[in-house]
């Protein structure tokens, strides 16, 4: 009898999903936003996203090599970070900055904390914030949609709807917001393309609908309570992209259902507080990163009761 049998603990059957298949689904779900961004802001948008992806993948490869760890670029998580980060840039960004952002996201935020599953904040968002603080002008110089069709070589600057709204001069329609015909980051203007990918992820059971639905609903309700235009607030800025793709990041969101609700409500609350009361026109990145930090506590507080768990042990019970 052959002695080279596989002897392992049960189960001997697996569902066939892998980290790679999950990440591949996320990349597929991001494609509509990448395409929309490329239509609205031209081929440069596509190039910026591709450059960021390349930067992230190369950073992952080199940093793992330097740390003498196994090569993990095959799990595609660096690609997801790259696409997300690219979608968070204004189209006119200096390519060197775009590459730098990728390096920060992967090396500093992800690999220095132990790689996939160990980072305590979303790498793409953390990198965006670092860039925003380091290069405030470049990161907030927005291009006018379809500037490239008007023969302009350089991106013509325009303000984002949220900035216009803060100044009280937003003149666009809901349709403009829905289709993305406004100023903003490459991937966050088109409120049509993002949920398309989000629904794909929900249908493929990659993400649960709890976080996006709760997040968007919270923003909607709070905007209404604060006397703002609720529809405008959920369609503009980074709410859609944040709710479907950033706040649902596995590593930095709670795994319990109750925890997911608390997390998403917190994100929505912070977003609206920053938008309405703070000095910044937009607060999605900050709100999600702040809530990321609270995840371990939220998870601890929302641990589900085990089947048949006896709630409180009766004292004095002998």
């Amino acid at each position: 009898m052959s002695s080279n049998m596989y002897v392992s603990a049960s189960p001997h059957l697996r569902s066939g999903i892998s980290t790679t298949s999950v990440m591949r689904d996320v990349v597929i779900a991001l494609l509509p936003s990448v395409i929309a961004g490329s239509i609205i802001f031209g081929i440069r948008a596509l190039l910026i996203v591709a450059l960021t992806v390349a930067s992230c993948v190369v950073s992952e490869y080199i940093s793992r090599k330097v740390m003498k760890r196994s090569n993990t670029i095959g799990d595609l998580s660096a690609v997801v970070t790259g696409v997300l980060l690219g979608l968070n840039y204004p189209v006119g960004i200096n390519p060197v900055m775009a590459v730098f952002g990728g390096v920060v996201a992967i090396v500093v935020v992800k690999q220095m904390f132990g790689g996939i599953g160990q980072n305590f904040v979303n790498p793409a968002l953390a990198a965006r914030i670092i860039l925003l603080v380091s290069f405030p002008t470049d990161m907030t110089t927005w291009a006018t949609p379809f500037y490239y069709t008007q023969g302009a070589v350089d991106a013509v600057t325009s303000a984002t709807p949220l900035a216009q709204n803060a100044a009280g001069n937003f003149g666009g329609s809901y349709m403009d917001l829905f289709l993305g015909n406004v100023g903003g980051c490459i991937g966050e203007t088109c409120a049509l393309a993002i949920p398309l990918g989000g629904i794909y992820l929900i249908a493929r059971k990659v993400i649960s609908p709890i976080i996006p639905v709760t997040y968007i609903a919270t923003v909607f309700v709070l905007a209404f309570v604060m006397g703002q235009d609720p529809l405008f607030h959920i369609l503009s800025g980074g709410v859609m992209l944040g709710a479907f793709f950033m706040a649902t990041d596995y590593t930095t969101s709670p795994i319990t259902s109750k925890g997911k609700i608390i997390f998403a409500v917190g994100c929505g609350l912070m977003t609206m507080l920053i938008r309405v009361y703070a000095n910044l026109p937009e607060g999605v990145s900050f709100s999600i990163v702040l809530m990321n930090i609270l995840v371990p506590h939220i998870e601890n507080l929302t641990r589900p009761r085990a089947f048949g768990e006896i709630k409180n042990k009766i004292k004095g019970d002998k």
């Binding site: 999903i17 892998s18 980290t19 999950v22 993990t72 799990d75 998580s77 790689g115 996939i116 599953g117 160990q118 596995y250 590593t251 795994i255 319990t256 998870e299 641990r303 589900p304 009761r305 085990a306 089947f307 048949g308």
Partner: peptide
């Protein structure tokens, strides 16, 4: 491979346990 904290283990546990934790 490394745990990505997807939460599938908790979701699929008939006893509501948190295998990853």
């Amino acid at each position: 491979t490394d745990c990505i904290r997807c939460g599938n283990c908790l979701k699929s546990c008939p006893m509501s346990l948190m295998p990853q934790a």
